[in-house]
Each structure stands twice: as structure tokens, then as C-alpha cells.
Design a binder for these strands. Structure first.
Lengths: 220, 220
DNA sequence: ATAACAATTTAGGTTTGTCTAAAAAAAAAT
DNA sequence: ATTTTTTTTTAGACAAACCTAAATTGTTAT
């Protein structure tokens, strides 16, 4: 089924809002996300409900139907693949690409997006560390961030490394850091970007910014 | 000044229609090109005239103002650059890319298009042989086609070669073909794609399809 | 439990880009 | 030089996506 540019944006917004734990998304939350008025959202929800891409009961919020979720994930797939393209191929910074990808995600062509995916080497993550759904809308992996970008006091698990040289692995081993280790950021030293981290609730150590940049964390 | 998706398409259509010699473009011609009704075109022309991107006198057709032409050429620039991307990087065939480029040409970001141009190595022509305007909307070169694609009885000048090996150049020299030579296609042999061509209104020779593919013609 | 407040929906209106049908202007044909 | 035909414009309507203002429903606090 073919949806308009605007309808696609509504589905995407509902998907992102329900990601944050919520089962049902409120009209006001959607109007905030899309910079429209609640009245406009009500109109659109009625329409999307008729197209059976959302479950909608008046005054009680909305959720995506399976088919709505599939469409939302396709748009997210396109968005994230284009972001990879912009960063990897056109040398954009990861913080410059969002608005352009917002436009590119609505280009209609399955072949295009599969070719793009291939051209980019089937990347599993976008430049912000968010996983890229596959063509069936499946997304196994979780979002990850470099330890260096993790907020103060946040915690998560080590899910990957950017560096895999023996020297780096030896260092991690000695420090007690391994894939799956639980890490909490206790302090950030502004001067050089080094971090004080708590590993598995047991040991607190100091890691340099260089090291932190190469450890990927799935926050929780 | 910012135009809508639809307004951009009108300007582009008017540009292409006035390319074919015509100074003033008719309402019907535009409605044909855009698959809309003449009444809709009249409405839009009034609007575009108010925005001072076209010169419009009722019942007398339209032409682009300098600012309208500049906008049209920017869109054409984007269209052609994306076509190069699709063919060169994503391995599309040159006849598959038009519809996708029709969508991509409306993506708004000057930085994007300049980066794309650079990424593609500043190509002077799109995959159909049409020249790509520069960022100021200037387009020096003329459209070119391989001699092998030139229609029967059409004529033009040799403006370039795809092959530049000494053997090929020697062959051309012997045949009397040089950059600037006037060539007319007298006959096409279906069997092997070879061509009978008239050079400078003097000499008729037969060239193989392989040779014809490597000679670029600016038709006239 | 009910009053006050917040969230949501309905009603009615706007803009953009389209349409059909009818009127007006220009071009072609007698 | 009229008539006929074609082209173009106007008038009035419609769908999509938005808006404001008013009405309704749900929630919270007393």
C-alpha cells in the first residue's frame, strides 16, 4: 500500500514514540514530535486507522498495526542507509546528516535502496550507532554508542570494539573489560576526555579518551 | 526563493519545452508534458508569474525569466548528477534511472549536491550524454551521443572519442574522421550494427558498430 | 463526588494543486 | 470576412493537510 510523504512521517513518529517504552502514543506527543496542532493529528489518525496501519480508539492513543510497523521500519531503514552514505561517501559529519536523510527517506524505489545497501557494504549500524533494519523490517541489534559519548552516570554493556589490534585487546584484558561487561560512567575528566568507569560493579578504573572511543556500549 | 515540488516541475518542463527552439511555450504543451489539464496549467502560470520566475501574458504563452531559468538549471543539474550516481555507483542501466532521478532532483541541500558532484569526479555529462550545468547554472557543452546511437539520416559533428588508443586514432585518421568532422548516417546495417556514413559531404565509408560506439556526435 | 484542569475531538475554514464545464480569445478555414 | 475550430482562461468543486475555536471526554485534586 502506498502512503503519502506526510502519512509516512506520522508512522515514523508513532514508531519512535512507542520505542520509548510506551505501548500507546498520545495525540499531543505526536503533535509535539511533528510540530503540528493536536487537531491536525486527530484528523490524520482517523485516516491512518482507516488504512489499517494503526490501532486507534478515540481518546485512548494509538499503536502501530503489524503492517504499519513494517512500513515505519522500511522508512527507518532508508533513513539510516542514506545517513551512512552521506557520512561514509560524501564526508558529512554525523551531526549534519539528519535533515537531508529526512528528505531522502521518502524516495520510492526498492531497487534503489537494495543497491545502496550493497554499495555501502550492508552496514549494520548508522553513523549514530542505531541498527539498520533489513529489507523485511527485522532489526536484531541494539543501538550502541562509543563509551566516549556515553552520558555521565549512564550504564550499559560492552557490545563491540572499533579497534581489534592485539595491543588493544591485551590492554582491555588487563583492565578487565570484555564483550558483555557491565560499565557505568562515574566521572568525566573534561581536560583530556578520559573517563572513570565502574566495571561489573566491582572495579573502578580510568580509561583515556582514545580507549573510550573504541569501546562500543549498548546503554540500558 | 523557495519553490514547491510542483512549481519546480513546471519550471523544468518549461525549460525543456523552450529548448526545442521555441521562444514561447504554450499552455497545452505544458499540460501534455506534465499530464495535467490545461486549466490547471493556467492556474499555475498565474502563480509562477507572480513569483517572477516566468514571463506570462494571457493567451500568449510563457518563457522563463533569468531567475526562473537559473532555478530550472539547478534542478537539471541535480537530476543529471543523481543519474550519474545511479549508473556509475549503483550499477543501474542508463534507461532505468530517470524516474528515480525525478524524485532525487527535488532534495533540498546545496552542500549535498556539491559533495555529490565532487564524489562523482565532476562529471561533465550524464549517462544520456546531456551536459551537466555547473553550480552557477552555466552549461557550455552540447548534448552528445555515440555515433552508434545516432538516428538514420541524422547528422552532426564529431565532438569527442571514448577510445584514445593509438590504433584507434590511426584508424580514424586513415578513414578521414577527426574532431569537428561533419558526419551523416546514410544507412544502418541491422545485422551487425555497422553504419554507412558520409564524411564532410565528400566521402561515404562503412564503420563497424565497435568503432561507432567510440565516436561521440553532437547532433544538429 | 464533583469541580477544575488537561487532553482530545469536532466543526468550520485555508492553501495547494488538481479537476470539469462553460466562457472567451485566437487561429484556421471557408 | 465570417464561421468554425482550437486554445486558453475563468468559475466552481474537490482532496490533502493544515489551522483556530469550541465542544467533549478524561484525569486530578480537593
Amino acid at each position: 500500500m502506498l502512503l503519502s510523504y506526510t502519512e509516512e512521517n506520522y508512522l515514523k513518529a508513532i514508531y519512535h514514540l512507542s520505542e520509548d517504552g510506551k505501548i500507546d502514543v498520545s495525540t499531543n506527543a505526536i503533535s509535539d514530535a511533528l510540530n503540528t496542532k493536536p487537531a491536525s493529528v486527530s484528523d490524520m489518525l482517523k485516516k491512518l486507522s482507516q488504512k489499517e496501519v494503526i490501532n486507534y480508539i478515540k481518546y485512548q492513543g494509538v499503536s502501530l498495526t503489524p503492517s504499519g510497523k513494517k512500513i515505519a521500519l522500511q522508512i527507518i531503514r532508508k533513513h539510516r542507509l542514506w545517513e551512512v552514505f552521506l557520512v561514509e561517501k560524501l564526508n558529512f559529519n554525523w551531526d549534519e546528516v539528519h535533515e537531508i536523510a529526512e528528505q531522502l527517506e521518502h524516495i520510492q524505489s526498492n531497487l534503489l535502496i537494495e543497491r545502496l545497501d550493497e554499495f555501502l557494504g550492508f552496514p549494520p549500524f548508522d553513523p549514530h550507532g542505531d541498527p539498520i533494519p533489513n529489507e523485511r523490517g527485522e532489526m536484531k541489534a541494539k543501538k550502541h554508542t562509543p563509551l566516549s559519548e556515553t552520558e555521565l552516570h549512564n550504564q550499559g554493556k560492552v557490545i563491540g570494539l572499533k579497534e581489534t589490534s592485539p595491543l588493544f585487546l591485551q590492554y582491555l584484558d588487563k583492565a578487565g573489560i570484555y564483550i558483555g561487561a557491565k560499565i557505568k560512567v562515574m566521572d568525566k575528566i573534561e581536560f583530556d576526555g578520559s573517563l572513570e568507569i565502574l566495571i561489573d560493579n566491582k572495579k573502578t578504573i580510568l580509561v583515556s579518551n582514545e580507549v573510550a572511543k573504541n569501546i562500543l556500549i549498548a546503554e540500558s
